[in-house]
Design a protein around this nucleic acid. Structure first.
Length: 573
RNA sequence: GAUUCGUUAGCUCAGCUGGUAGAGCAUCUGCCUUUUAAGCAGAGGGUCCCGAGUUCGAGCCUCGGACGAAUCACCA
């Protein structure tokens, strides 16, 4: 492995520590008794309590001034300044611990523990005066340290690719990243508490499913060896939760990782989290109330107010939310009353509105398309869009007043769908017919049409009480609540293309080719990163390049001869 | 999948009309006892994403490719 100079420096520092009898990875626990944020928050109101503190964390900056030094220590709670004084670290004659271990062998990024007392510097900064320190972990890679002065940020670690691939570094050096994920946990906790308080049962249902049902999406396929059959990662858990309602629970919910084999964007990750809930004897009107109350509570728990800044908008999550049918929404934004239109008229409207269509689209799809193009983005404040066409919603009960529509709502916030809910279809005859329509769509080439799930039909043939169900995108909710504009910011490890693995060659490989040990060390730095490179280079050029490198670096080894090179090439070929 | 932009030192980024690869920070050495991205003096550090081509000469121009980002389309 080719190490950068800084990595080599850190490794040799590690060796020196070992020589001094210091274990840079000690096994025993370290008796931390306070967090950095506690010290900076509470020291001035109770100085006595901080005369004997013990902290541990990562060194984030160092300012060494002869026999005194300042450094910044970061623990899970935040940062605090440390003050080191040589004659206190090393009261006796031997100053090795300060001069060598502290000044030379420690680096930014190392994890240390310190014991001492808290005081305030002349600059007014609350600081730990260190009497004793312990190396807890030596860091072998340099951290990209972000610095800040007068509100300006220097050397920011901002490349999204690197931030997501090396989230651990992002968490260390970028302020606020940790906090986003703390807030994510708070959102989930708040929602879970809300649902538990209502007495609903949190359940777990299969992720590996033999029929990927409950939504219109392409699944990931895998294979079960023992059963020798394909299995799918779930695209939704809806059909399983409904089986549990059939089984007699009044309310069930699940925080579910779902998987969809579709495009990625700042709103889409192949695996994402939904909370789905089903409650017996309720309808979608009831569910609207529950949804808005739940979201209002989450906003209050998180921010202490229902008003949340999202991008340029302030979104008010205070219930109740506006309700608007999809047909009224279209009328409001386009002026067209599409409620009684057939396919031909709708195609005409789409043409006038400059919306792309294709011949496979039916009434429902066309209405959905118009809404998506012309309306959806306009609903910034939370709005329930209701009563979608029946073709779009094969699992949803028909509308009590109009059988062409369904009792469905989607909650729009900041121009995006956040939640989706139905009065669930519990008529097994109608459900079977709707599945068959989906089969027809599949036969026409719709690869997202739902597959018929016979066991689910069997379940609701036993009788599922009237039920309302709702699914809410947790990632999107967290994006709203933390003012993040991409889903990657609210997932610790968003999906990414794997890093390209470079084929690693070592000097030993050159030795195997008959290159002497001295020269083998030089091959890679001289630019011969694989035997292939050698093969493609003219022998005379190899000689020039290697001897050129030898001369430039004043290497004390014999120059390479044409004969040697020809011998290597003979072995390769 | 389409379009646009990007890839240069550990990090952030310059690099003119094609002419010996640069800065700041980080690193290393020295000085410095309360500093504030500390300061001062010095040093080392590069597969200019990869591969072809044009050229006396390519970080720069042309073509191909890889990777990434943004926007758009499907989807939560």
């Amino acid at each position: 492995m080719q190490l950068s100079e800084q990595e080599q420096i850190r490794r040799s520092a590690l060796q020196e520590l070992n020589k001094l009898g210091i274990n840079a990875y000690p096994p025993e626990q370290y008796p931390v008794n306070v967090l950095a944020s506690d010290v900076s928050k509470n020291f001035q109101s109770n100085e006595e309590a901080y005369q004997d503190v013990c902290l541990a964390g990562r060194i984030m900056s160092r300012r060494i001034m002869g026999a005194a030094s300042f450094l910044e220590l970061m623990d899970s709670s935040g940062r605090i300044q440390l003050y080191f004084k040589r004659d206190e670290i090393c009261p006796a004659e031997d100053k090795t611990l300060y001069n060598t271990v502290f000044k030379r062998l420690l680096d930014i990024g190392d994890i240390i523990g310190v014991k001492g007392f808290v005081f305030v510097t002349k600059m007014g900064e609350i600081t730990v005066h260190v009497k004793e320190f312990t190396i807890l972990t030596k860091s072998l890679r340099p951290l990209p340290i972000v610095k800040e002065k007068d509100g300006e940020v220097y050397d920011a670690f901002t490349d999204p690719d690197q931030r997501y691939r090396q989230r651990y570094v992002d968490l260390i050096v970028n302020d606020g990243v940790k906090d986003t994920f703390v807030k994510r946990a708070q959102v989930i906790r708040s929602m879970r508490n809300f649902l538990n308080d209502k007495g609903y049962l949190e359940v777990e249902t299969p992720i590996l499913q033999s029929i990927p049902g409950g939504a219109a999406a392409k699944p990931f396929v895998t294979h079960h060896n023992a059963l020798n059959m394909p299995l799918y990662l779930r695209i939704a858990n809806e059909l399983y939760l409904k089986r549990l309602i059939v089984g007699g629970y009044d309310g069930v919910f699940e925080f579910a990782k779902d998987f969809r084999n579709e495009g990625m964007s700042r709103f889409h990750n192949p695996e994402f989290t939904q909370m789905e809930i089903y409650v017996a004897y309720k309808d979608y009107f009831w569910m609207m109330k529950m949804t808005e109350n739940m979201i209002e509570k989450i906003a209050l728990d998180l921010h202490g107010t229902t008003e949340v800044q999202v991008g340029d908008n302030i979104i008010n999550f205070k219930a109740p939310y506006r309700r608007l049918s999809i047909l009224d929404a279209i009328k409001e934004f386009t002026g067209y009353d599409v409620s009684k239109m057939g396919v031909d008229e709708l195609l005409d409207v789409c043409k006038k509105l400059d919306i792309e269509t294709d011949p496979s689209m039916g009434v429902g799809k066309l209405i959905d398309e118009i809404f998506g193009e012309k309306c959806e983005g306009s609903f910034i404040q939370p709005t329930f869009i209701t009563d979608y066409p029946v073709e779009m919603s094969p699992l949803c009960k028909r509308h009590r007043e109009n059988p062409e529509l369904t009792e469905r709502f989607e909650l729009m916030v900041n121009g995006k769908e956040l939640a989706n809910a139905y009065s669930e279809l519990n008529d097994p005859i109608d459900q079977r017919a709707r599945f068959e329509e989906q089969m027809d769509l599949a036969a026409k080439g719709d690869d997202e049409a739902m597959v018929i799930d016979q066991d689910f039909l069997r379940a609701i043939e036993y009788g599922m009480p009237p039920t309302s169900g709702m699914g809410i995108g947790i990632d999107r909710l967290v994006m709203l609540m933390t003012n993040q504009s991409s889903i990657q910011e609210v997932l610790f490890f968003p999906q990414m293309r794997p890093e390209a693995v470079k084929k690693v060659i070592t000097s030993a490989d050159f030795v195997d080719m008959g290159v002497s040990a001295d020269w083998a060390e030089i091959m890679i730095p001289a630019g011969f990163t694989s035997p292939d490179v050698l093969k493609k280079t003219k022998p005379s050029a190899i000689q020039q390049k290697l001897n050129g490198y030898r001369k430039k670096n004043k290497l004390d080894i014999p120059a390479i001869q044409m004969e040697d090179i020809n011998n290597w090439l003979a072995i390769i070929n």
